[in-house]
């Protein structure tokens, strides 16, 4: 039985299409020349805000900091009317309970990183315990990291099994699988890892931990979107996408939205299927919305930095 599974994973990996980097760069450049203006821009900015996983993943995080971030998640900029909230806050497992109680009565989700984030250098039993702890604390979503070392060593079945095991431990929590593309080195690897994660049960695939550079480049996100597209065409099942790390401006966020629209279609343009993992993006978007409404830029001092 185990042998059969291994064989099918090998087949899965060898069926991953190769990726031509130059071609990807060219296509990605086209998304960046789309001109988004007026109402279309305002709609995109609000959509972008609504897709943010407001994130703090520091060793020095304190309950106070997390509580303040949760308040911000629900009250992005009260001065502006009709703003959405962000999609979720993303914290370490030890902060899940605090975030959960701070967000009570709101629809903002709590996402927890797990599986020995960010390196993933721990045995499966530890990763499972980490995940189960976060889920029991009330996490709605789990952001796991894959074992990049095993992946690069060609132990695809190990990586696959690990994702499947974590997925089982998630229960009702949605699973985002972080590929840490900055460590995978090639787009071919990004594609293989995407297919591996999707077939092993990921609800979302996510580019990066934010701790390694480069993180969510458009080339990488594009490659992952194509994997999602192929899976959807084959099975009819939607998989979510979360670029994380490095998307700190509204402009870049809009380029990403254009890319999602043109590769996957409007159905993916909700926070159920697309997220930005970011900490400083929200304020830049707020500043742009303010600019659209008043015609002038306001000093960054007027936007809270929780």
């Amino acid at each position: 039985m185990k042998k059969e599974l291994q064989q099918s994973i090998e087949e899965l990996i060898s069926a991953s299409p190769t990726i031509d980097k130059v071609g990807v760069e060219e296509r990605v450049a086209r998304f960046q020349t789309r001109s988004i203006k007026g109402d279309s821009k305002l709609q995109a900015l609000k959509m972008g805000l609504n897709m943010i996983d407001l994130t703090t993943l520091e060793g020095k995080d304190t309950p106070g900091k997390v509580q303040q971030m949760c308040y911000k998640a629900m009250h992005l900029h009260d001065e502006l009317a009709n703003l959405p909230t962000v999609a979720a806050v993303c914290v370490y497992p030890s902060m899940v309970k605090i975030a959960k109680s701070a967000l009570v009565n709101s629809s903002v989700k709590v996402a927890s990183v797990s599986t020995a984030f960010p390196s993933g250098q721990a045995p499966l039993s530890v990763k499972l315990a980490d995940t189960t702890f976060a889920v029991n604390e009330g996490a709605d979503e789990i952001d796991m990291v894959i074992s990049r070392g095993k992946f690069l060593a060609g132990e695809y079945d190990y990586v696959f099994d690990e994702i499947a095991a974590i997925k089982a431990a998630c229960g009702n929590a949605r699973l985002k699988v972080i590929l840490e593309t900055g460590e995978l080195l090639t787009l071919d690897n990004v594609r293989k890892a995407s297919d591996l994660a999707i077939y092993a049960g990921a609800d979302f695939i996510k580019t990066s931990t934010g701790k390694i550079q480069p993180a969510a480049t458009m080339q990488v996100t594009f490659t992952m979107l194509l994997a999602i597209k192929d899976y959807f065409d084959k099975t009819g099942k939607m998989i979510g996408m979360k670029p994380a790390g490095g998307i700190s401006t509204a402009k870049l966020a809009i380029h990403n939205l254009v890319m999602v629209k043109e590769v996957l279609g409007n159905e993916w343009l909700t926070n159920q299927w697309f997220r930005f993992g970011a900490s400083s993006l929200a304020n830049d978007i707020l500043m742009q919305i303010r600019k659209l409404e008043t015609g002038v830029y306001q000093s960054s001092d007027y936007f809270s930095i929780d």
Partner: peptide, 13 residues
């Protein structure tokens, strides 16, 4: 609720 509002079809102006 405003948190859950779905953005309908986004088109370029």
């Amino acid at each position: 609720t405003k948190e859950n509002r779905q953005v309908d079809s986004w088109e370029y102006a």
